[in-house]
């Protein structure tokens, strides 16, 4: 049978040691299938962002195991994980985090230039495409620091899509968007999941967003309920 598992975590435990030792994740396990559009909901402080950072491979200080596309990522070096992220994971941070001195276009192109699989012209073309899809025509050459909060968030989404990663993660990716733009992003995510088989995991506080996804995971005090 074809392997359809995209992400698999087993018994994830995470502590913070500052200001005092405190268990944030208390043994979280689940699997996500390829092409699934998943949302994580829960009260503020329940550990959603923390979980997403572990899933994104950036946080390596945890107990338990993480597998993406059948590859065990627990225990790999920072540089191995960086290369893996570059190719397989697109990430939209809770606070948008663009490079302020680079144009919107350059921000979107960076991960693809790093990956180096396409020529600069092809990448540029692709970047223009995704910016247009996110209603950012005419903003491409503006410096990121001159864009509004919602525009920045959409640039960050375009950047997460540029390498066609097998997994896209978002920490409240539509938190700063109006209903119309939020709906557009949801549609894009849905299409990517269902037509191109990309796995999407989003943390959200928006019930409409959550209801629009294939599966909802609810977190409470570091556990899935």
């Amino acid at each position: 049978m074809e392997n359809t598992t995209s992400i698999e975590i087993r018994n994830l435990i995470k502590y913070f040691h500052e200001p005092e030792t405190f268990q944030v994740l208390k043994g979280v396990s689940f699997t996500v299938n390829k092409g699934q559009f998943l949302s994580i909901v829960g009260k503020s402080g329940s550990g959603k962002s923390t979980l997403l950072y572990v899933l994104s491979t950036m946080d390596t200080d945890y107990e338990g195991t993480l597998q993406i596309n059948g590859e065990l990522l627990t225990g790999k070096t920072q540089n191995q994980l960086a290369a893996f992220r570059n190719e397989h994971i697109g990430f939209v941070f809770q606070f948008h985090y663009l490079l302020p001195e680079f144009s919107a276009l350059q921000n979107v192109m960076l991960p693809a230039l790093k990956l180096g699989k396409l020529s600069a012209e092809e990448i540029e073309h692709k970047a223009y495409e995704s910016l247009r899809l996110l209603d950012l025509q005419g903003q491409e050459l503006k410096n990121a620091k001159r864009l509004s909060g919602g525009q920045q968030q959409r640039v960050a989404i375009a950047r997460a899509l540029i390498n066609s990663p097998s997994v896209i993660m978002g920490d409240e990716p539509t938190g700063n968007l109006d209903t119309k733009n939020s709906k557009a992003v949801q549609d894009i995510f849905k299409q990517l999941a269902h037509e191109y088989g990309q796995t999407i995991i989003c943390v959200t506080h928006d019930p409409d967003f959550a209801n629009n996804t294939d599966k909802i995971i609810e977190m409470k005090d570091g556990l899935i309920v």
Binding site: R85, L99, L115
Partner: peptide
């Protein structure tokens, strides 16, 4: 910015 670059997959 360095943190962002690393998050995007840039190595040390």
């Amino acid at each position: 910015e360095i943190a962002i670059l690393k998050a995007l997959g840039f190595s040390g």
